[in-house]
Design a protein around this nucleic acid. Structure first.
Length: 356
DNA sequence: GAGCCGTGGAT
DNA sequence: TATCCAAGGCT
């Protein structure tokens, strides 16, 4: 591994930049208060960090507000109903995070007296808290000099040290670089400073090197490689999967929904019934024996690793109708916002087909 | 290590 | 339209 000594003034310049340019985020203690010794509520740090996993600040904002309003502490969250938490998370994606969030909350409330562990190792034992999140909470909430490495840090380090090894093979080298830069003082602000820098200046495309506080010491800028870093091994193309979703509406307006199994795609979430999605639509029976019509609107949706084309079939049923599985949700309690996005789209397409 | 797991915005 | 990508974790 290459020698990765940053210029001695680099970390200090980064913190000075952060003191002047830190973004105002709902879960953040601003630098002037951090310097005065104030720390963020560990519950807020944990909740925001889990929500921010592979998710933009803009998307997280309303969800963070909703969760902290509904459940002001980890103990409140631990006491919540599973279905309420999954419904509140609907639309944010990566639903295993919501299931692990509840597991973690119940573990903290039930076994740890409502207090999060204050060390990186302790945090890392909890569900949904991996290497990044453990380090981030330890640094931000508990002032531990943990080495925080997320996608922003990877990009900033790859450029600062002109690391051309492609990810993920470059991870050890990048971790060493981040460790060499992490200060003993204000490690939480330092971590947030690197991430803010990556989000606003050292961006994936068109990095604003001209206004970067670290421009003097940046090897990629000197070598002209900044725009090409970090290198990544190419990803596989997304295949197309096909499926059918059934929208059954009773005369009283209730709609048939199923809760999906806890594991796998959209695990634990409500959805429209239908066969599993695959290269072709498998032979199957509809959830109710009825006359089904095909909505003219095909739903297209892209997941992490495949494109989906979903046909929506619709029917109207008498008031007392029964289904083989799932539950009819009265129109009054049915909120499209409680569904994952693909089923919000399917519901909309199906209702248009029913009402045309 | 590599596949699985969402979504919406930017380019 | 197609691709990339965002404060990753789990298996």
């Amino acid at each position: 591994m290459r020698d990765l000594d940053p210029a001695p003034e680099t970390a200090g310049m980064l913190l000075e930049w952060y003191d002047r340019n830190a973004r105002d985020l709902p879960w953040r203690v601003p630098p002037h208060r951090s310097r005065a010794g104030f720390r963020a509520d560990p519950y807020h740090v944990w909740l925001s960090e889990v929500m921010l996993q592979q998710t933009t600040v803009a998307a997280v904002g309303p969800y963070f507000h909703k969760f902290t309003t509904l459940w002001p502490s980890v103990s409140h969250l631990a006491a919540a109903e599973d279905a309420d938490v999954m419904a509140a998370w609907a639309g944010l994606g990566y639903y295993a995070r919501a299931r692990n969030l509840l597991k973690c909350a119940r573990q903290v409330a039930g076994e740890l007296d409502g207090c999060f562990p204050d060390t990186e190792a302790g945090l890392a034992t909890l569900p949904g808290i991996g290497p990044y999140t453990a380090a981030a909470i330890a640094a931000i909430a508990f002032d531990r000099p943990a080495v925080v490495v997320d996608g922003n840090v990877e990009r900033v380090m790859a450029r600062l040290f002109d690391i051309r090894t492609p990810l993920p093979a470059a991870k050890p080298e990048i971790k060493a670089a981040a460790a060499a830069l992490t200060p003993a003082e204000r490690p939480g602000d330092h971590a947030q400073a690197v991430m803010d820098l990556g989000a606003t200046i050292c961006t994936p495309r068109n990095p604003a090197c001209g206004i970067c506080p670290l421009m003097a010491g940046c090897l990629a800028r000197r070598n002209g490689s900044a725009a090409d870093l970090p290198a990544k091994t190419p990803k596989a193309a997304k295949p197309v999967r096909r499926g059918v979703a059934y929208l059954a509406r009773r005369a009283d307006g209730a709609i048939l929904l199923e809760r999906r199994p806890d594991k796998g795609l959209l695990g634990g979430m409500l959805g429209l019934p239908g066969p599993d999605w695959g290269e072709t639509v498998p032979a199957h029976r509809p959830p109710v024996d009825a006359e089904w019509r095909i909505s003219p609107l095909v739903v297209r949706h892209t997941f992490t690793h495949f494109h989906l084309e979903l046909e929506v079939r619709v029917t109207e049923l008498p008031e007392g109708a029964q289904a083989r599985s799932g539950r009819f949700h009265p129109g009054a309690e049915l909120r499209a916002g409680d569904l994952p996005t693909v089923f919000r789209k399917a519901l909309k397409a199906g209702l248009a087909g029913l009402d045309d």
